[in-house]
Design a protein around this nucleic acid. Sequence first.
DNA 1: CATGAATGAGTGTTCATTCAT
DNA 2: TATGAATGAACACTCATTCAT
Lengths: 221, 221, 221, 221
Amino acid sequence: MCRETDNMEKQTIEYSEKQNAIIQSAEKLFSQTGFDGTSVRDIAQEAGVNVAMISYYFGSKDKLMEAVFEQKTTQMRLKIENLLLNNNITHLEKVNILIDEYVDKFVDQQEFHKIMMREQILERSTPVAALILELKKRNLQSIKKLIQEGQKSGEFKKHIDIMLMMSTLVGTVSQVVVSKRFYCEVNHLQNLTEPEYLKYIRKKLSVHLKNLFKITLTNDI
Amino acid sequence: MCRETDNMEKQTIEYSEKQNAIIQSAEKLFSQTGFDGTSVRDIAQEAGVNVAMISYYFGSKDKLMEAVFEQKTTQMRLKIENLLLNNNITHLEKVNILIDEYVDKFVDQQEFHKIMMREQILERSTPVAALILELKKRNLQSIKKLIQEGQKSGEFKKHIDIMLMMSTLVGTVSQVVVSKRFYCEVNHLQNLTEPEYLKYIRKKLSVHLKNLFKITLTNDI
Amino acid sequence: MCRETDNMEKQTIEYSEKQNAIIQSAEKLFSQTGFDGTSVRDIAQEAGVNVAMISYYFGSKDKLMEAVFEQKTTQMRLKIENLLLNNNITHLEKVNILIDEYVDKFVDQQEFHKIMMREQILERSTPVAALILELKKRNLQSIKKLIQEGQKSGEFKKHIDIMLMMSTLVGTVSQVVVSKRFYCEVNHLQNLTEPEYLKYIRKKLSVHLKNLFKITLTNDI
Amino acid sequence: MCRETDNMEKQTIEYSEKQNAIIQSAEKLFSQTGFDGTSVRDIAQEAGVNVAMISYYFGSKDKLMEAVFEQKTTQMRLKIENLLLNNNITHLEKVNILIDEYVDKFVDQQEFHKIMMREQILERSTPVAALILELKKRNLQSIKKLIQEGQKSGEFKKHIDIMLMMSTLVGTVSQVVVSKRFYCEVNHLQNLTEPEYLKYIRKKLSVHLKNLFKITLTNDI
DNA sequence: CATGAATGAGTGTTCATTCAT
DNA sequence: TATGAATGAACACTCATTCAT
């Protein structure tokens, strides 16, 4: 465990305060207006730094994008891996924790996930696309292991298409997060404040997905 | 009903051959490289027309985007509505047809759906966003009606969150469509041709989602 | 002869008025401040056109440079070749005409020759460098032929290093052209107008070089 | 004469090791890619010093250029002057030594001479241009004196345009040095190593120019 | 004395759009 | 109706230089 933590901190590149401000601004603007729709001037202004600093620190706009992803994906991967590692609970409980983790991740870090979605849509073979693919592969491995252990213990059914279940998990959360305005209008939630809405949606998604997974994975009704 | 149809057909603007070529090219390129990543020159070249034609016909690049959406969303809405209208079958069978319709729609018209996803992610209040919102609202209404009829007939359970189910439906399909490369690599499907892959994924999604909906909507195991 | 002229005109690319204005301005500014020292904005201003026109017409700054060279070098090569082709005079007279041609060429087209000199100094392997090399090779061939014919006829000495003689011809003219200010100050010619100075220097160079070539090529004292 | 020497040595500024490294790197890069084509970062990297050092030590990029010239031109001037001063030989022999000196100077210090040529081409009134002009004037004076003494002694002809002869000397050597690639290709010398080529060209130039000067300056055939 | 961080001005180029024809 | 020519604004990026330390 300690070793893990050490590695984690070693892998994470240390950025200066300004560099972090740039990364954060980039993350925000890329999610709001897309990569091509965001100019380095916008990012610089948002971060309160000179335009030239972006090239100075990150080399290019593309490299900045990579830095944003490098940082985030590393964090995510490690979180999922640690999550599944050391719990003394049933496999279904682990699945439920995983679901809550994904829900929280998408809800809390909407901005980054929007960038990630858009990058996947574009299907271009960039370093960023490679990072996403790698992240998804490793996460799938972790979850596959969890499901297989549950199957061995008899807790889960055989013949589960883990990938489709993951698509349902990730897809449902993405869809709800992205359709915020639609969701609010239809369900008459326009009066909710942002935190209230987030709390509400988090709970809804959690219950919905846990139920979906339970009836899919186990034999219980 | 007749009135509805009439209105609908009135809404559909008639375009010249060149205009249609432009719309089609725009749809393709917007999905491949995004709105900002696509230049009007690219679109003009792809469509085999002069650059100035785009401003000439559609007024601006933004307006062209709207035209693309106007056309597509109208088509989609009509298809869903007609689908649910005249069938002499059980409500679950209607749901299954609906699922297949969504799967086919996303798989066959990936390009347009990618643009739509990206536009939703951006969350900007554009005419295009309004069109998407309107489409989703009307589709939701149609489906709500279907589910409620199924509940009245005792075929479906009470207390179904239709919106979350729709998010699962749309989200899962989107996710799979978008993660094509990931899906292929993990499932060792790299040797499949494009049509083979599409057929495969269509079937997988259809079975998976029908199963999900069945156990969610009905009391049957 | 007619065929030659036809070819010549076929080879020469036809440029629009604006394109020619750009080429001319580029030639001037490149010679005055160098390629790197000249911005496309400077060229555009000098030519009285929009900055974007340069990329629009020539693709890039580099390509503009190539266009300048393409045009000039073609003209030069053809002139030299035609010069040596059809004259009914002695070989020494031909050499003298050649000398005058070089002197005139360098004096009249100082600006372009300055660019050419600088490009040679840089020794970079650009398309422009290739054009210069090609021009020099073809000119050398023409002159070699002339000298060899003179040697066959007994008019010229054997064992003449044509290349060194050409270096002396070109080098001397270049040197004088480039050292204008030095030349004027030392010879107290500051009061001469530009045309007066050019006339003066042309005569001086012509006599000097013809003398040098005569005593080098022939056996006469 | 002593005073002269004293002044000269006073003029020579003493530079630190780092400063010399910068000057040397600047000389190299300016010759290879031109003044505008060379960035201070390139120079700093080549010299292994911090970028800011250049402004710190020399004030600006322009001032660095001046420093490069100040150093070199002083060295050159002194060499020529000393050369002509103390020899107990004929005037023609002195001229021959002078020719070899120029040939060696241009061949050995090609890089610096390329910068000098380029600066002359630009014709701008910079401190650097003034330094070059001053150098050329003083060298011309020295040589004028030599020729005039030769004329007095009857060794040389009357009516010699020293300046044109100097232009031929400097121009020919420059031309050959600059046209290295052309020279090698045409004379099939591509297989020669760099030192072999330099040796070859030095000899060629020496013989060619000494011959040219002999027949020009003296009455001998 | 020395330097990493930072900057504003400037680079070449591309953009969506307009306009004369 | 249709378009080649043209444009100003914006783009990502590099520059020589400055400054706090």
